[in-house]
Nucleic acid binder design. Structure first.
Lengths: 109, 109
DNA sequence: CAGGATCCCCCTGGATACTG
DNA sequence: CAGTATCCAGGGGGATCCTG
């Protein structure tokens, strides 16, 4: 890890958000705990392998929790960590901005 | 452009934030209009070519304005567009989150 | 059900050299 | 001063196939 990441809150957040599906996954989990295949259904554009990698990445970055139940068939639940919970504020603003952005460009173009 | 980008505010914002230096550039411009070489000095880790590309990308995405003055030596000023201005709210939350993130991981690790 | 293991390919960041 | 023009290498996304 480099020094700029440790000092600058913007670079730090940027690093966490690099994954193409990071924001959407965090959003999905912000509405509640989800199982793996629930996330799959909510995000049909993402393949399994990619979704798994994105989840691992967010887990490594301490934004989400992964809970495995020792059952058959297996059950795995993903949820926001305490740190991930603090990300919700960003998500709220992203949603507002995103909608405005979509609207604005619809008019302009 | 694909349909999911046009509909989902999270995907839309994600696309805009893909560039490695997007957030930092937006932050720098959120504190006021800057010339190209000011940005260079504020972000020494980024090379010229890369910074230029990032600026063009944000310009294409309508988040920043590029104003060229017909002078010698040339002067180019970058600033937030009206749309970019709306991004400030996200930046505020990113800063808060980033600082909390840095703090938390310092303690945990 | 929830993945793991590979492979491939493209895109993007970065380095370097040149310019109106 | 504020870029362009190339080139290169690495990594991440995506597809496909396999598994406890």
């Amino acid at each position: 890890m480099e020094s700029i990441y440790e000092k600058c809150p913007f670079m730090t957040t940027q690093r966490v958000l690099q994954g193409k599906w990071a924001i959407v996954v965090l959003y999905q989990l912000s509405t509640g705990t989800k199982r793996f295949n629930e996330l799959e259904k909510l995000m049909p554009e993402v393949t399994r392998a990619v979704l798994t990698r994105q989840l691992r990445q967010l887990e490594d970055d301490k934004l989400i929790n992964r809970k495995v139940y020792a059952e058959v068939p297996p059950r795995v639940e993903y949820s926001l960590s305490p740190l991930g919970d603090k990300f919700k504020k960003i998500l709220d603003e992203i949603e507002i901005f995103g909608l405005e952005y979509i609207n604005e460009l619809k008019i302009t173009k």
